[in-house]
Every structure is written in C-alpha cells, then in structure tokens.
Amino acid sequence: MSEAHAEDIKKHVRTYIMVFVVLLALTIVTVAVSTLHLSTVAAVSVALIIAVIKGSLVASYFMHLISEKKLIYAVLVLTVVFFVGLMFLPVGAFSDKVALP
C-alpha cells in the first residue's frame, strides 16, 4: 500500500474518533430527553430524529457509504423504497377500516 494511502487512512481514523464522540453525545441527549416525559408526538419525533442521525453517521462513516459505488446506492435505494412501502401501507390499510357495528 502506498504512502499516500496510509495517510488517507490516518485521516479516516481521526474521522472515526470524531464520529464516535458525536454518537456518545447523541446517546446521552436522547436518554436525557426521554426523562422529560414529553408528549407522545414530541417524544417520538425527537427519539426518531436522533436515531436517524446516529444511524446515518454509522452508515456514512463506519460503513463508508459516504464514498461508495453507484451500484451499492442503487441496491439501497430500491430497498428503501420497499421498506417505506412495508412501513406505511399496512399502517394505511389498518387505519382505513370499514367501521364495524
């Protein structure tokens, strides 16, 4: 492996440490917020937003998605589309119910 490559990796390592610190901080934030016992909507929004941020950090930096090949993106976009369908369509089907006597 070339010198430049090793330099690259060292830069990466610094990023990993930073991401690690941010993840720890966000963990503390989300636990702290939960002790406030907010209303359901607010609590769910805050918790999910923080989880999404943490998840994207892991995916982008640890799993290197930030600089991945197009093909991987294509696979993931397809998965996300069906994932969204899976999450929302059953919920829609449930909330749209024929009223029973």
Partner: peptide, 14 residues
C-alpha cells in the same frame, strides 16, 4: 399484495 385481502374489512381508499 392486499388484493388478496379485500374481504378483511379494509376501507375504500386503500
């Protein structure tokens, strides 16, 4: 998929 389930009492929109 839900066209297998028209008789489960789903509403008109879905």
């Amino acid at each position: 998929w839900a066209h297998h389930m028209f008789l489960t009492g789903m509403g008109t929109v879905i």
